[in-house]
Amino acid sequence: MDIKIGLDLGSTAIKMVVVEGDQIIGRRVAPTSPGQDALAQKLIDGALAELGRKPAEIRGVASTGYGKKLFTGAGMNIDEISANALGLFRLSGGQARTIINIGGQDLKVLNLSEAGKITDFRMNDKCAAGTGRFFELVARLLDTPLERFGELSRAGAPDLELNNTCVVFAESEIVSLLARGESRETIIRGLHGSVARRVAGMVHHQLPDDGAVYLDGGPANNPGLKAALEDELMVEVKVLAEPQFTVAYGAALALS
């Protein structure tokens, strides 16, 4: 069977999936760096070699994300909002009505119809508050790997509120909190709460009466963020396996 390639050239990482039928059979990720064209091609070549498939079997390549036009091997470009809707709707078995996507430098909220069509969407302006970059900065500041944020936030005190979601001002606030003796667990929990409040401000009246809210993008792997969102939105937030590949998968589906 022919295969399709979906590439999501984002601001912090390039994600690639190999799709056969509508199943993801291979996936790769690499940090974004100069030379995205070659980097993306390397991901494809690596995945094909691992799967034992040949380039001639590729029926199409679609790219999405900020760098979508930088990959010259793509036969199709699609915006990441539409790709996100396509990918997550399919992966959720048609259950998704609201999607919260947290990317490297974007925060998006999408509403879908029962047929999976976008009925409304919102996206942050030029501000990194609440995005993957924000988490990365705090991880550096606290000298703590992002993978541990979920586990650590569970041990944090619940009543600390971070006032600043601005990346620059949050940095000085966190330094002050550390100097005051707050534990990193409590700070991380406070951070999740502040991001959840920012997302809630964007979701606004967009929560569906039925269907579920899905969280995807790299930061969706953080269970502390999921818990904070559930607390803030007062709905169940679902995270599917490997949520960072949803958009690349949607790009591949767009080829059908």
Binding site: Y66, S82, D106, I118, K126
Partner: peptide, 24 residues
């Protein structure tokens, strides 16, 4: 938006999605 060019990519993403949204 603002009087700056730096948010062009962000705006374009939304406009492209909106174009798809119009077709839906």
């Amino acid at each position: 938006t603002d009087y700056t060019a730096e948010d062009s990519q962000n705006l374009l993403t939304r406009l492209e999605a909106y174009r798809h949204h119009l077709e839906a």
